[in-house]
Design a binder for these strands. Structure first.
Lengths: 240, 240
DNA sequence: CGGCCCCTTGAGCTGGTTCAAGAGATGTGG
DNA sequence: CCACATCTCTTGAACCAGCTCAAGGGGCCG
């Protein structure tokens, strides 16, 4: 059932089938959550570990001026929040962007697994480090890429990540994110996101309409973005 | 000798004196390294763990256009790179910004420690998570703060971090970073960094000259920055 | 049917960049 | 010990990428 989760976990080859089975078993019954719901709030004491099984979520921080910055987009298979283990307070909020199905692994259960299964510890460290590399790639985008490169780069990233869990192929991907959300992730206004998307559409590179991304020319998109996906530490799979 | 390192490690109260002693013992003889030297290069296979004992370094990524984005500023006591454990390739370069003294913990040695000492594993995970929160704070700055807030925010962060390892007090801190480096960290041009610093100086909030930061009015600086240092997971200590 | 989002586009503005030039500072070699 | 090269800091002037403000249209839900 939690297909993407398993794909994600086993994709890096760090876990045995047994480990994966243990993890899946540790998840309680999944919760169905509507769009726009906060799962964890800034200032909360860390709780269980969450796994997204379906749908999209994001990690964000609200500023006093009322603007917001999204610091991560989470898709099926993504895990949060390991912080639970060590830190005292959450520094950010996590919310669903679409309706989503989310599983939780209770903290005690997880600690048990980690103690008993070094491979699982290692796999968590791995995802943690990959997430961090992703975060750094975003920082580079916001700091040094213009908005065309920036949008293109994010689309490349999302396409690769979705491909890895079997949610994208042949240049197509369901991407139910509003331009407002994209703007908050990219440090732009939604107005400008709209203009950039138009430019990409006009030049026949890709099109994002009605919650669906269609990449007409992946090579060109990669070139525009200056995308080098090694930070995701996964090959881009050929269409399965 | 590696004073800041010990302060950093024991500061969060996760390690016993014994653990700290083990870690210090694991460091080989420190290396003295001149300014502007790469310690780890993008694409390298991960090697030992580094600890900065003196001086400043940074993590950065070079773009094809020749611009660079610094993704972390490293000061004494800071550790890198845990990536060694799990990832195959380094995604970025680490270089000294000033002459620096750096210790290394060989990989095998570290693995041994981690196996034998759960508290050490936990402490490393802690630093890892704090670094990640810091990275997110930077992302928020680049995405949603104007340049005045951005510069002020970074100064607040550096001041708190330096205070925690005993390198700053009474609003003073040695900060031997060029405006070019600051620009690369903040996603700005050095020209604009210069103008922002002038504005902060003119308004009597802080002054950065000749490698030395003097904060005249910390409250005002914090207010301008919208700084909330909880992401560093340390109280700001009163001057010791 | 009405209200609420979101998308889309236009027009004008502005924060930060680019380009340029001079002034210290520091280091190096003759 | 001076001459020269290199690097950073500083400031001015012009430009432009992305923002703000505004308005209209479409889709979806109650």
């Amino acid at each position: 059932m939690p297909d993407a989760f398993i794909k994600k976990l086993s994709g890096h080859g760090l876990l045995s089938q047994e480990d994966v089975a243990l993890l899946v078993a540790a998840c309680g019954r999944p919760n169905d959550i509507p769009a726009g719901r906060d799962l964890i709030r800034e200032g909360d004491r860390p709780g269980p570990l969450f796994v997204i099984l379906e749908g999209w979520a994001c990690r964000y921080k609200l500023l006093p001026e009322g603007t917001r910055q999204i610091t991560a987009l989470l898709m099926p298979g993504d895990i949060f929040d390991l912080h639970a283990f060590v830190l005292d307070r959450m520094e950010h909020t996590i919310a669903t962007l679409t309706s989503a199905r989310v599983a939780m692994i209770p903290r005690e259960r997880l600690e048990g697994l980690i103690e008993a299964r070094p491979a699982i510890t290692r796999a968590f460290l791995w995802t943690q480090l990959v997430d961090e590399d992703t975060l750094r790639a975003w920082l580079v985008s916001l700091g040094r890429r213009d908005t065309l490169q920036r949008v293109a780069h994010l689309m490349c990233e999302l396409y690769v990540r979705a491909s890895n869990i079997g949610l994208a192929k042949d240049g197509r991907l369901d991407l139910p994110l509003t331009q407002i959300v994209l703007g908050d992730a990219l440090g732009l206004t939604s107005v400008h996101v709209n203009r950039v998307l138009r430019k990409l559409r006009m030049s026949g590179i890709m099109e994002l309409t009605a919650g669906s991304l269609t990449i007409a020319d992946l090579d060109k998109l990669v070139a525009v973005a200056g995308f080098d996906g090694t930070y995701l530490h996964r090959r881009l799979r050929r269409a399965a």
